[in-house]
Amino acid sequence: MPGGRGGTTMRKKSTKKYEIPNPQQPQMVSSPSPSSSLFNYRKISLSILVVVVVSLVALLSFSSNKDRAFTSSSPPLSVQPQLYVVEVVNVFPHDPNAFTQGLLYSENDTLFESTGLNGHSSVRKVALRTGEVHTIQSLQYSDFGEGLTLLDDRLFQVTWRQNTGYVYDRYNFSNFESFTHEMEDGWGLATDGKVLYGSDGTSALYQIDPQTMKVTRKQIVKHQGHQVPQLNELEYINGEVWANVWMTDCIARISPKDGTVLGWILLHNLREGLLASGANSIDVLNGIAWDRDGGRIFVTGKLWPKLYEIKVHPLKTPIRGDIKQICIPTTQDF
């Protein structure tokens, strides 16, 4: 953040003159006695001392004010967001034909998932440990499914390139309501149990009233002053909004208070491991689910054959390259 330039207060130099009597100047009075001369010399010495002390005080005051001025005019140091890597705790099967757009954990090792692509979009209930799809609701061909979240007994889903979405009953997936939202597009959804958080592929993070679907707050997500575009799938975890950044292997940990990126989670090893195993048809990382009661985090990607339970650890060694180049893509049209 740019720092404000503080005002500099300069003390005026004193205009008072300190007159030092000249011992060679003719005196208008009679010659003083030796004791009187000694008194005058002491008086002169005292006057000189006063001048020196006052000058030093003025100089120190000027220097102090100058130092404060430079300090206040310097911009505050920006806080470097923490970098994290992941440890794979468990690996579960995942439908390799699922173009994952939204992912969330319910309970009893059950996931809800939203998939995309025209003609293949759906909302589904999935068994975590087997990857089996227990319930599925397909969307009409014109709908490209995107982000998904669960609030109470209602599943909210948004669609791509539209300002519309759907609400489903979590138990039987009946499509009983549609809605219109105020975001530029529909990409990601999450909730803290009270409001919905939404993304539209830009650097904006929206807060939405789940009753009216009206935007109540909009923040621009930034990393050290740089906007972070292409925010995609979202999850609310322990007071933070976690966001997949499209076309990267990064998850941004975002403060919902001001949109500041608090940290970056680097997941390059997951995609690289899949490619090394021969999974060449995979698409980008996308999908974050949080088991609040069990403290577990799950991630997957579009067309990934695996879903991972991970633990997040602070990165202790420097990375090669600039985090902005690794995790902040250049904006592009869709």
Rank of each mutant, 00 (worst) to 15 (best):
Leu155Ile: 15
Lys306Leu: 03
Leu315Trp: 02
Ala58Gly: 11
Ser31Asn: 08
Ala204Pro: 03
Asp153Gln: 14
Ala204Phe: 13
Asp333Val: 15
Arg161Phe: 06
Thr149Pro: 02
Gly186Ile: 12
Glu132Ser: 10
Ala190Glu: 10
Ser63Val: 15
Val133Met: 05
Pro96Gly: 04
Glu19Lys: 05
Gln80Arg: 12
Gln24Glu: 14
Ala243Tyr: 11
Ile282Pro: 10
Asp200Thr: 07
Gly7Pro: 00
Phe99Asn: 05
Ala276Lys: 15
Ile319Ser: 07
Thr8Leu: 10
Tyr141Trp: 09
Leu270Ser: 07
Tyr166Thr: 10
Pro329Ser: 06
Lys17His: 07
Pro314Cys: 05
Pro26Ile: 03
Ser73Pro: 05
Gly263Gln: 07
Glu107Ile: 05
Val126Cys: 00
Ile48Asp: 11
Val126Trp: 02
Tyr206Thr: 14
Gly7Cys: 09
Val158Ile: 12
Gly119Ala: 03
Leu274Asp: 12
Leu77Lys: 13
Lys17Gly: 00
His223Cys: 11
Lys16Gly: 01
Val133Asn: 04
Asn90Gln: 14
Leu111Asn: 01
Leu205Tyr: 08
Met213Trp: 15
Lys311Gln: 07
Asp209Glu: 09
Ile48Tyr: 11
Gln211Pro: 01
Pro34Arg: 09
Arg124His: 08
Val126Ser: 00
Ala98His: 07
Leu285Thr: 11
Arg170Ser: 04
Tyr166Lys: 15
Trp160Ala: 03
Ile328Gly: 03
Pro23Ala: 04
His181Arg: 08
Thr110Phe: 02
Arg170Leu: 01
Gly116Val: 09
Trp304Pro: 00
Lys222Phe: 08
Cys250Ala: 09
Asn286Cys: 06
Thr9Val: 14
Gln25Tyr: 13
Leu307Lys: 04
Gly278Arg: 05
Phe99Gln: 04
Arg253Phe: 00
Gly3Met: 05
Ser174Trp: 06
Gln101Asp: 02
Trp304Ala: 02
Val89Thr: 08
Phe334Met: 09
Pro26Trp: 12
Gly294Ile: 02
Ala276Gln: 15
Arg124Pro: 06
Asp109Met: 04
Leu139Asp: 14
Asp283Asn: 13
Trp242Ser: 02
Tyr166Arg: 13
Glu240His: 08
Lys125Leu: 05
Gln207Met: 10
Asp95Cys: 04
Lys17Ala: 03
Thr260Pro: 00
Glu182Pro: 10
Thr191Ser: 15
Gly294Trp: 04
Phe112Glu: 03
Val241Asp: 08
Val53Tyr: 09
